[in-house]
Design a protein around this nucleic acid. Structure first.
Lengths: 214, 214
DNA sequence: TAGAATTTATACCGGCAAGTATAATCGCAG
DNA sequence: CTGCGATTATACTTGCCGGTATAAATTCTA
């Protein structure tokens, strides 16, 4: 019911262009939000970065709130797909958890890291807010599941999966507060150290059997 | 140079009243911010909770920004004093760290927990923002110091103190995101589990010598 | 090259909320 | 009860910013 008959699919190039521009808008928004915060960023600011004017933004996005939503989604989506990949592999619970951690750090240090964790879902409409909560909850459940799996297969010691998931996610999310692009550590290095820390804990280990079980 | 001569100190009751009311304003602000976020909270909202009107608030506080600042300070101050107490005791680095964790959880689950970690210092004037950063940095340094101390005295295993402090603080700060007053776990229980987790790590331990060294 | 669709800009509206005169009250000392 | 400081309320101004009506420019198709 759009476009009568023959040239149903446009040049294809036009659509691609549009998509790219839309992505650029979302990206610019994400960066601006990270730097100044959601409420301290005006649409004019975002437009200026792109050398465009405000109405142009509205051509690609329906309103400011939706920009935030898309940023949320982009970031969370990356973590979710890391979870998905981990589920594919058939290694131990601990190994899978570590894979997720790597993907998580990657996502959190991206442009969308800020939105992912520091943006307030209060700033979203109830419907969008609910959707975000849902996505976050899925990730949380995924992590808890991996911890439980690890406990079951013996690759992780006994602990409260819920608390472990909270602590791990908290430590990871917090990276968004202190990470800077020019940081001394790369995303991967950070992931390695976090893994080391969470696996071995702070207590001194009787050296030798540090942590390479299943 | 205020109040000529004799009754320098007023009734004392008057001053006390004022102080109490001011505290009530800050508290109300903290609660409102936590529920709706800083930018979604109007001064009229805060005033309404106190059954007062907006100008009354200005009698106790110079502007909205200062309210946020005071909330920040209150929360951070509590953590700082936990650090101070820990420094008093002469126990192992690990024991002191655990004491700090308890105080930290207490602070983060208070009314000021939200402001402490989720409020954006972007919303503060450069001067105030700088002051907050300073306070946060002091706490961070304190924690790193305890980790180093623990490593030195053998109560903590070898690790990167900076990363350990980041991970620990992150996990703790994140509590502000999920903690609800009616939660099943009390602040103290949360602290215990976190300590257990961070001390022992996720890897299974050869049972027996779990973690009660110096 | 006509003209339709797509893309962008100019110029405006409206509302909300921070902050502020100004004046009315309240409570206590004399 | 009287007058002065401390406290609170009424009613307003002001600026910002999200959102939009409208028209111009650009690009593709035929």
């Amino acid at each position: 019911m759009t476009r009568p008959t023959s040239p149903w699919q446009v040049t294809g190039d036009r659509e691609r262009q549009r998509e790219l521009k839309r992505d650029a808008v979302i990206r610019a928004a994400a960066r601006a939000f990270r730097e100044r915060g959601y409420h301290n960023t005006s649409l004019d600011d975002i437009a200026a970065v792109l050398h465009v004017t405000k109405p142009t933004l509205y051509y690609y996005v329906s309103n400011k709130e939706q920009m935030l939503f898309e940023c949320f989604r982009e970031g969370l989506g990356r973590v979710a797909s890391a979870c998905g990949e981990a589920r594919g592999t058939k290694t131990s619970g601990r190994a899978r958890l570590l894979a997720v951690v790597r993907g998580y750090v990657e996502a959190i240090t991206s442009d969308f890291g800020w939105c992912m964790v520091r943006a307030e879902d209060q700033d979203l409409s109830p419907a969008m807010s609910a959707r975000i909560k849902e996505l976050k909850s899925e990730i949380d459940q995924e992590i808890r599941g991996l911890v439980r799996l690890g406990i079951a297969d013996g690759s992780i010691g006994r602990c409260d999966p819920k608390m472990a998931a909270f602590a791990l996610a908290g430590a990871l999310n917090w990276i968004a507060h202190w990470y800077r692009d020019n940081a001394s550590l790369s995303a991967n290095e950070i992931a390695e150290r976090f893994v080391e820390l969470f696996v071995n804990g702070l207590a001194p280990r009787p050296s030798g059997l540090s942590g390479k079980s299943p």
